[in-house]
Design a protein around this nucleic acid. Structure first.
Lengths: 344, 344
DNA sequence: TTGAAAGCGCTAACAA
DNA sequence: TTGTTAGCGCTTTCAA
C-alpha cells in the first residue's frame, strides 16, 4: 500500500518532442513548406508534399496544438456543458449526445472540454469562456429562462443548444417534440381512447413545455372533450407522481401518458404495486423511451429519438458557425413512434 | 424555423482581447513585471504588484492560456477517461467523480478534457496523448488487463487510476473494497446468517474481483461451512441474474449479497415478482449502494462510498505527480456500512 | 526590484 | 513552388 513513486519532470518528457523545425531541417526545406504540407493550405509541389508527409508519418511528428493555437487564435477544443443537477435518467442521454459530438469533433481535430454547470452558478462556464479555452460551445438541456444562454450571447462566442430555447437568436438543435407528441397522442385517440392523463416533469424545462403543447394540440385537433383530459405537471418526486396517478385513476382515464422515461418508470412501479394491469386496466405511453421502458413487461409504447444524432448535428452546426458559415436558427430532427404492448 | 444567422469572424472577436503588453504599457512597466505580479514568481515590489493586480481586475485581463501553455509546455487541461461502454448505473458514479475532479482542477486553473474510450479502441486516448492536449490523465474504471493503462505507461504521461489495477507501478485511488466487503459480510454472519449467496458482475472488472476477495475472506475468518456459500459471477443480463437467484433460493440461502446496485435492483425485482418477502423470506445486502437501493421498501443494507472524494483525491494526486512530487502508489479511501431494513 | 531580449512551435504575409 | 520574416502572448534567463 505504500510504494513511493517519483515522476520525471515535464522537461524530461518534452525533450523527446520533435518540432516542425526538426522536420524542415531533416528534409532540407523551410518550416513554411512543412507547415503547408500538413495543413494543405497554400501551393506546394506534390513531390515535396509526399516527402514531408512520409517523413512525418515515419517519425510520427505531431504539431504542437498550443503553438498552432497561439498562431491561429484557436484552441482546438469545444465546450460541452451539461447541467450540474443532471439525474441518472438524463445522463445516458447526454452520454449519447457526447458520442455524436466527439465523433464529429475528432474529425476536425477537436477535443471536448466538459463543464458541469449548475443553474445560477455560471462560475465554471465563465472560466472556460473568459480564459478562451474553447472555440465554441454546445449546451445540453435548456431551461425556459436560461442564464447560461444569456451569458453566452453576451460573450459573443459561437454556441449551439441541444434542445430548444425561448431566447431569440439562439441556434437550436432539437427533436420535433411538438410534432412527435402530437402524433403519438393522436394515434392513441384514434385507437379509441377518450379519457387520458398526461403526467409531466419540471415546467421550467423547455422540453416539457414543448411536449405539453404537442399533447394539447392533438387533443384539440381530435376534438376530445376537455373534461376528459387531465394534465399533471412538475412530477418531481415519487410522491408527486403517486398523487397524479391516483388522481388519474380516480378520474377513470383509459391511458396515462408520461413525459419521460423516469416518470414512466415510476408509474409502472406504482401500478404494479397496486396490482393494476397494463394495458388491461389502464394503458400507458411515454413521450420519451429508454431501456427501462423497452424492457418492461409489457413494453411501453413510446417516442424514440436518437441523441447521438443530435450531438452530431449540433457539432457540425457549431463548426459551421465557427467558420462563419450560415446556419439555420433551428434544426428539428425526426423521431419514431414505437407502438408496443402497453397500449394494445 | 428557418432564420439565417451569420457569425462574426474570429478576428472580430479577438480584437477586443487585451494582452499582457497592453497592461504593461498602460502602467508604464515591462511585461516581465506584469507577468511576475500575476504568477507570484520572482521578486517584485509590493506596490507595483498591487498596482498591476488592481489594473488587471478592473480591466478584467486574462492571460491567454495558449500563450502560457506554449511558453511553459503546459496545456492546463487534464484528461478524464471513462469507458465507452458505461451503462446507466456507471454514469452517476463517474459524474460524481468528475465533480470532485473538477473542483480540484478549477483551483489550479485546469479544465477537464473528456474522452470516452472503448476497450481495445484506444484511438481517442491516443489522439489526446500524442497531440499533447493534456498534462495528465485520470482513468475511470479499470479492467484486469487494461490496454489503456499499458498505453499510458508506455507514453510516460502522468496518470492515476480511479479503481484498482493489477498492472504494477500504477498510481491507484480506490475505496477499500476488500476491507469493506469483508466487514459487511462478517456483520451478516455475526447476525446469525449461515447460508448465503453472492451474485456478482463481470469477472474482468478489477473491482468485482476485489469484492469477491473481501467476501471470501470473511467467510473464511468466520469459519463458515464452504457448502453453505454460493458464488455466482458474471451476472450481466437479467436472465443470468434470474438464474442465480433461483439457484440461490433452491439452495435455501438466508441472505443474498449483490456486488453492485444494478444487480441488487434486479434481484429486488425478481423477488418482488415472485412474491418473496424481504427480509422475511430472504435477506438482501449489496456491496454498492445507490438511490435505487436506498429508496426501496425495505431499504437495502449496503456499503456506501463517496465517489466525489475519489475524484478529489485522484486529482490532487495527479497534480502531485505533474509537479514531480512523491505520491503513494495506492490510496484507499474509507466507506460506511449502512445497515437497513433488508437484513433486519 | 525591474527590464531587455530571446524563445516556446507554429502560421501567414510578403518576396523571390 | 518555395523561403524569409514577423508575429501570436506569454515566460524566463540574464543583466542592470
Amino acid at each position: 500500500m505504500a510504494g513511493q513513486n517519483e515522476w520525471t519532470t515535464t522537461k524530461g518528457r518534452e525533450q523527446s518532442r520533435i518540432t516542425i523545425g526538426d522536420v524542415a531541417e531533416a528534409l532540407g526545406i523551410s518550416k513554411t513548406t512543412v507547415s503547408r504540407a500538413i495543413s494543405g493550405k497554400g501551393r506546394i509541389g506534390e513531390q515535396t508534399r509526399q516527402r514531408v508527409l512520409a517523413y512525418i508519418e515515419e517519425n510520427n511528428y505531431r504539431p504542437n496544438p498550443m503553438a498552432q493555437g497561439l498562431a491561429q487564435s484557436k484552441t482546438y477544443n469545444i465546450g460541452w456543458v451539461i447541467p450540474g443537477d443532471s439525474t441518472i435518467t438524463d445522463l445516458p442521454f447526454f452520454q449519447r449526445c457526447m458520442i455524436g459530438i466527439s465523433e464529429v469533433a475528432s474529425k476536425e481535430n477537436y477535443d471536448i472540454l466538459i463543464s458541469m454547470v449548475y443553474d445560477h452558478e455560471l462560475e465554471h462556464l465563465r472560466r472556460v469562456v473568459e480564459n478562451h479555452k474553447v472555440d465554441g460551445i454546445i449546451l445540453g438541456r435548456t431551461l425556459i429562462d436560461d442564464e447560461r444562454v444569456r451569458f453566452l450571447k453576451e460573450h459573443d462566442i459561437p454556441f449551439v443548444v441541444i434542445g430548444s430555447s425561448s431566447e431569440p437568436d439562439v441556434i437550436q438543435i432539437d427533436n420535433d417534440h411538438v410534432k412527435a407528441c402530437r402524433e403519438l397522442t393522436s394515434i392513441l385517440i384514434m385507437k379509441g381512447i377518450r379519457r387520458l392523463a398526461l403526467i409531466g416533469g419540471d415546467e421550467n424545462h423547455v422540453v416539457n413545455q414543448t411536449r405539453r403543447r404537442g399533447f394539447e394540440e392533438a387533443v384539440a385537433e381530435q376534438h376530445l372533450n376537455e373534461d376528459d383530459v387531465f394534465i399533471y405537471m412538475n412530477g418531481e418526486t415519487k410522491v408527486d407522481i403517486e398523487r397524479s396517478v391516483e388522481e388519474a385513476l380516480r378520474n377513470q382515464v383509459e391511458c396515462i401518458v408520461t413525459m419521460d422515461d423516469r416518470i414512466g418508470f415510476e408509474v409502472i412501479n406504482i401500478l404494479k404495486r397496486d396490482g393494476i394491469q397494463i394495458p388491461d386496466q389502464v394503458k400507458l405511453a411515454s413521450f420519451y423511451s429508454s431501456d427501462l421502458l423497452e424492457s418492461n413487461q409489457p413494453a411501453v409504447t413510446a417516442l424514440q429519438y436518437d441523441p447521438k444524432e443530435l450531438g452530431v448535428v449540433a457539432c457540425r452546426t457549431l463548426f459551421d458557425m465557427m467558420n462563419a458559415r450560415q446556419v439555420d436558427e433551428k434544426v428539428l430532427l425526426s423521431y419514431e413512434v414505437a407502438l408496443r404492448g402497453s397500449t394494445q
